[in-house]
Amino acid sequence: MGLDFSVVPGFFDVILQGVFWTIAITVSAAVLSFFGGIFFAVIALYAPRAISWPMKGFEWLFMGTPLLLQLFLIYFGLIQIGIDLPAFVAGFVGLGLHFAVYNSELIQTAILAVDKGQMEAARTLGLSRGQALRHIVIPQAVRDVIPPIGNNMIALLKDSALVSVIGVSELTLSAQLAIGRTYRPFEFYAVVAVCYYIINLGMEAVLRRLERRVQASR
């Protein structure tokens, strides 16, 4: 039994749907992980211990355990305490928070690296600490970590394949669906691999543009 790619066009709509959901969950989880990362970083650095210590535990949970387990916990586990999330939402929250914790580490380091004079100058003008963080310190910190955050986002795209196990019909699950009907794993996994690669190229192009824009304002 040789390879036969002629079965692929028949599943064009299934794969296209997979592409759509992969992009949807990657982009939405990326946005959550970005703003969540800033939020966690500010809490870790500036919140009183009563808040920042529980955060540490939360961070440990997300950094120290497998993403797959986290997805199971959020999708299957939370039902037991009455939180029944749709698969997409569970995947979005799991992926988003998982990478928010990694982004938070990067952003914390970058916030601490912003010159102290920046905060002083802002406070001297009469800005509150919150205003100084929001308008002066955090924009500079984020600007400095766009490349490593970009790397995290590429990892997020690849890890989005994991949400297939909780039933989000993204690319990997689409492939499995098509394979289940045709018994042609090589053809569909290969096509889906190419799809991931193309989405990846698109993301890298967006990130490069972002970096260039930021570089221009240095």
Binding site: D115, G117, Q118, E120, A121, I136, P139, Q140, R143, S217
Partner: peptide, 13 residues
Amino acid sequence: IGMVFQHFNLFPH
């Protein structure tokens, strides 16, 4: 109270 610093502390972004 306006203040001017040795190292300017302009906001680079």
